[in-house]
Design a protein around this nucleic acid. Structure first.
Lengths: 184, 184
DNA sequence: ACCGGCAGGCTAATGACATTAGCTTCAGGG
DNA sequence: CCCTGAAGCTAATGTCATTAGCCTGCCGGT
C-alpha cells in the first residue's frame, strides 16, 4: 500500500457527510474530493465512478438502518415488536432524511444483499404473528410498503395539513396489526 | 404571438415522451430540444429552466393520475371504492412507471395544487367508511402511504421474490380496510 | 543502504449539460 | 407599410464526470 489517507470506505464517509449537510443533490465527485482534500480524479482510484459511489452509499445506509431496526425489535414480539420496528424506522428517517433518500435513489444496486437483511428482520417480527413462508412474504411486503411510503412522504414534506403525524402513524400501524389478525 | 410551434405545454409533452421512452435520467434540455426539433436555448422562452420543467411535468402527471383514480372510484363506495382506487393507482404506475418516478422526484414543487385533488379523492373514498374531518385526514395519509410505498417498491423492482404481487397487494388493501373498521 | 514496482495522487484534456447574452426574423396591429 | 415583440438561433461560460498519462514516495527484497 501507500499513503492510506483514502479508501473506498473513507470516500463513502465523506460522501455521507456531504449528503447529511447539503442533501442528495449536492453529491458530486468534486464535492467529495474537496471534502477529502484531494483532486477529483484521485477518487477514481477508490471508486469506479459516481454510480458506484452511490451504490456503496446505498448499501452503507441500508445496513446502518437495518442495524437499528433489528436492535429495536430484538427481545420483543407481536404488536410490541411491530411497534418498536415501525418507530425505529420512522425515527431513523427523521434523523437522517438525506441518507434515506440517498439510499432509495438507486433503483436496485448492490444493495440487494443489504436488502435481504431488512427482509429478514421483517420476517422475524412477523413470526410473532404466526406467519411463515408465503404468508410471511406477503405480509413483509406490506410492512415494507406501508413503512416506506409513510416515511418517504413525511420526510418529503408531503403531509402538509396540521393533523398530528404521530396519530396518522399510529393508525397505519393499527391497520397492519389488525389486518394481520383478521382473516381475509 | 409568433410561430406557435412550441409552448410550455408542448415542451412538457416532449419531455413526457422522452421520459416514457428512456426514463427520468434521460430528461435533459438537450434531449427535449432535439425532440422538439429546436436548439436547446430556445426552450428557455417557454420554461424558466430545467427545474421548472420538472415541476410542470410533475403537476401534469399528478393530474393525469388523479383523473384516472377519481374515474375509477366514481360511483362506488366502501370496500368497492377502496379496491377500485387502489387498483387504478397500481395500474397507472405499472403502465407509466417512468412518469410516476418523474412525478415524485421533485420534493414538493408546484404540485401542491394537484396534490389537493388526490387528497380530495382519497377523502371521498373514506367517506364511505363514515370518516370525516381529522379521522379522515389520518386515514387518507395512511392510504396514500400504503399505496405509494407499494407501487414505488414494485415499480422499482424491490420485490424480488416469486410470490405473486397481486396477493401481496390484496393483503395490503385488506389491512387498510380492516384497520378502518376495527376500533383502536 | 540500494532498487524497482506500484498504489495513489496530480495535471491536462474531453465531452455532456445548463444557462446567459445578444442577434435575427417574422407575424400582426397601427 | 412600418414597428414591435415573441420565439428562434449562435456563441460563450461554467460545472461536472471521466480518461489518459505523469510523478513520487513507500515497501519488500537484495
Amino acid at each position: 500500500m501507500a499513503r492510506a489517507s483514502l479508501s473506498p470506505e473513507a470516500v463513502v464517509d465523506h460522501a455521507l457527510r456531504i449528503i447529511d449537510e447539503q442533501g442528495v443533490a449536492a453529491l458530486t465527485l468534486s464535492a467529495v474530493a474537496a471534502q477529502a482534500g484531494v483532486a477529483t480524479p484521485s477518487l477514481y482510484k477508490h471508486v469506479r465512478n459516481l454510480a458506484e459511489l452511490r451504490e456503496l452509499l446505498s448499501a452503507r445506509v441500508m445496513n446502518e438502518m437495518s442495524d437499528q431496526l433489528s436492535e429495536a425489535a430484538l427481545g420483543r414480539s407481536g404488536d410490541q415488536a411491530l411497534r418498536a420496528l415501525m418507530d425505529a424506522w420512522r425515527a431513523y428517517v427523521l434523523r437522517h432524511p438525506h441518507r434515506y433518500f440517498a439510499m432509495i435513489q438507486t433503483p436496485d444496486a448492490g444493495r440487494a444483499e443489504a436488502g435481504e437483511r431488512l427482509i429478514g428482520i421483517l420476517l422475524a417480527v412477523l413470526r410473532g404473528y404466526g406467519l411463515e413462508d408465503s404468508d410471511a412474504i406477503h405480509a413483509a411486503r406490506c410492512l415494507r410498503a406501508a413503512g416506506h411510503g409513510f416515511v418517504v412522504l413525511e420526510a418529503g414534506g408531503a403531509f402538509g395539513l396540521p393533523e398530528k403525524l404521530n396519530e396518522s402513524y399510529d393508525l397505519l400501524i393499527h391497520m397492519i396489526s389488525s389486518g394481520l389478525r383478521t382473516p381475509r
